[in-house]
């Protein structure tokens, strides 16, 4: 029997297409699940939305994460925070680099998914390569941004005084709707490079490579809970994102003014730090900056007397 749906059907000549040797073989479809605490659960709510290509082909049933899924993600992220933030910068750097290695080896899958979601092949290739390089870029910052942004402050009294950056904590990231791979990779990498743990809501219209990226994460050395990836509807989750009392920061990569207002306003619940990344060209050097790390950090200043 041929496949009855067009679910995640590979384009001709694609990597997965060519792997299918027999015309009679039933295509094994991929179930797109959430990624929480290093595991791939279905949404507890059992809800889904159907993803279709521009041509109307059905690409897959995507989990519609619920507020409880989000709650579980925050628990996972909070549990992972202590260990991840305490890892040496060198170690974090190596783990991010390892992510790049994993992604490099799976380029074809991501190119497929991007093209299914409407990218041209050339654009998809460009984005995947850029995503790999972006990971290498942020891997490199792990043990360097602190040296750029920390300071020994020459106070007038007999004290040694220094300021360092510390991760804000648990960060919720609303990934960009377009550039669904490199946008997600950039925000995730910049958050965790600085020792935060994160919950990322993937692009609603282009979620496929977000879920696949979770598989990359899972096969690398990133501890469970450091990056959690949800799919679903921003409109129904945003209220929970902004009001959760154990989230320290929320990063919004869109330009919806009403959404920005809501985030700013609702974040006052526990004064989570709102960060907005609007009108970013995610493929450009604009998205390569240590300031993407530093805006999810807190400055801690320590005083100590100098004497004998």
């Amino acid at each position: 029997m041929p496949t009855t749906t067009k679910k995640a059907k590979p384009k001709e000549g694609s990597h997965r297409g060519s792997a299918q040797s027999s015309a009679n073989r039933l295509n094994v479809q991929k179930t797109y699940k959430l990624f929480i605490g290093g595991k791939f659960p279905r949404t507890e709510s059992g809800r889904y939305y159907t993803l279709k290509s521009a041509e109307g082909e059905q690409l897959g049933n995507i989990c519609r994460a619920s507020r409880k899924d989000f709650r579980e993600s925050v628990l996972a992220a909070r549990a992972a925070f202590k260990g991840w933030s305490a890892k040496s910068a060198f170690n974090r750097s190596q783990i991010l680099y390892r992510l790049a290695e994993m992604l490099e080896g799976r380029q074809a899958q991501f190119i497929d998914e991007l093209t299914m979601q409407g990218s041209t092949k050339v654009a998809a290739q460009k984005e995947v390569i850029a995503a790999v390089d972006r990971l290498v870029y942020y891997a490199g910052w792990c043990d360097k941004y602190q040296q750029i942004f920390s300071a020994v402050n020459p106070v007038a009294s007999s004290h040694f005084n220094f300021s360092v950056l510390e991760p804000t904590g648990v960060v919720v990231i609303v990934a960009p709707e377009e550039n669904s791979l490199i946008g997600l990779v950039t925000t995730a990498a910049s958050a965790i490079a600085g020792g935060n743990t994160s919950i990322i809501l993937a692009s609603e219209s282009k979620p496929l490579c977000a879920v696949s990226f979770a598989e990359v994460i899972n096969t690398s050395d990133v501890p469970g809970g450091v990056i959690n990836i949800l799919t679903g509807k921003l409109s129904e989750l945003i209220g929970h994102f902004t009001t959760h009392m154990d989230v320290n920061s929320i990063v919004y990569c869109g330009d919806d003014r009403a959404m920005i207002k809501k985030i700013k306003s609702d974040s006052t619940s526990n004064l989570k730090r709102p960060v907005f990344r609007t009108a970013i060209n995610w493929l450009s050097a604009e998205a390569e900056t240590p300031y993407f790390i530093s805006d999810m950090q807190e400055t801690k200043t320590t005083w100590h007397p100098i004497g004998i």
């Binding site: 009294s157 007999s158 004290h159 007397p305 100098i306 004497g307 004998i308």
Partner: peptide, 8 residues
């Protein structure tokens, strides 16, 4: 004894 504290 903390010298700075004593001096203060």
């Amino acid at each position: 004894i903390d010298q700075v504290g004593i001096e203060e």
